[in-house]
């Protein structure tokens, strides 16, 4: 469990980090909480030559309310989000989501930006980001832009971030009625299935993680929904379901339906 050799640079501003990323290109990796990147490096599955640590950049770890939105800085740890009263009161679905992530140690280090950029198909945040229709703010050498949640996740460990781009914050609309339901994988405690549901009157938005190699909006469920949870039976319509040692396609498909139903009922 010894990583290969690397250089370490602590960035003091977003623009510096972006510049460094541009300079080192493929050789470099952004380091935030390190709770996905470092384990991979220890196993030598990932061997960056340069680590650009963004965790000390000021302004990237605040949670604020602006207009109708809650803005969570990319460097906010899961613990910080969990402890935020603002999030608890106006974005409770996010509180519920981070509560399910790892254990205290993991939550104390892992960040929202790192979690989204890493795009582990079994991680929790993506379902909630999708259901909330959050907006991801990024900055790169060509300046800043935003990416809608629905466009962000591209596949297993793959996002629409450009190589030189850094996530700086995530913007959420306030959510009154939402909930997150997770079936834990017994070893890793990541999600075998994670379902986020945001209800707004008769309409519903459903984000699903763990089921497919890309987290997705369960549009078929949303379309079929008319106030009752039977729409859950559409949880995997047009979805290619993952299979592993804990949940094969049949069982995972079943769980997806059960958990969408559960989230719709909650």
């Amino acid at each position: 469990m010894i990583p290969s050799k690397f250089d370490y640079i602590k960035a003091s501003s977003i623009s510096e980090a972006v510049k460094l990323l541009g300079k080192h290109g493929y050789d470099a990796k952004i380091l935030s909480g390190g709770h996905s990147l470092i384990p991979a490096m220890k196993l030598r599955l990932n061997r960056p030559l340069v680590l650009i640590d963004i965790s000390g950049i000021s302004g990237m770890n605040t949670i604020t309310e602006q207009g109708g939105e809650i803005i969570i800085g990319a460097n906010c740890t899961h613990s910080q989000v969990l402890k935020s009263d603002l999030v608890k009161n106006k974005l409770n679905i996010v509180t519920q989501t981070v509560k399910c992530i790892g254990d205290i140690q993991v939550r104390n280090r892992g960040t929202i930006g790192g979690s989204l950029a890493h795009a582990d198909p079994s991680s929790d945040y993506p379902a909630t980001i999708l259901a909330c229709e959050a907006i991801i703010e990024v900055e790169g050498k060509n300046g800043s832009r935003t990416i809608d949640a629905i466009d962000f996740f591209q596949g297993i460990f793959t996002t629409s971030l450009a190589e030189d781009e850094i996530i700086t914050a995530v913007r959420f609309p306030k959510v009154i009625n939402g909930n997150y339901q997770k079936f834990f994988q017994s070893a890793s405690r990541f999600a075998v299935v994670g379902v986020a549901v945001v209800k707004d009157g008769d309409s519903v938005k459903v984000g699903v993680t763990g089921v497919s190699d890309t987290p997705y909006r369960a549009i078929a469920v949303e379309d079929a929904y008319s106030g009752n949870s039977d729409a859950g039976s559409h949880a995997i319509d047009n979805i290619e379901v993952m299979s592993d040692h804990f949940a094969d396609v049949e069982y995972r498909s079943h769980l997806a339906k059960v958990y969408v139903k559960k989230a719709l009922e909650a």
Binding site: S186, A187, S188, F190, H245, F246
Partner: peptide
Amino acid sequence: ITGSYMDYAM
């Protein structure tokens, strides 16, 4: 298949 604590459930 179960060579780490990601897959070996303690």
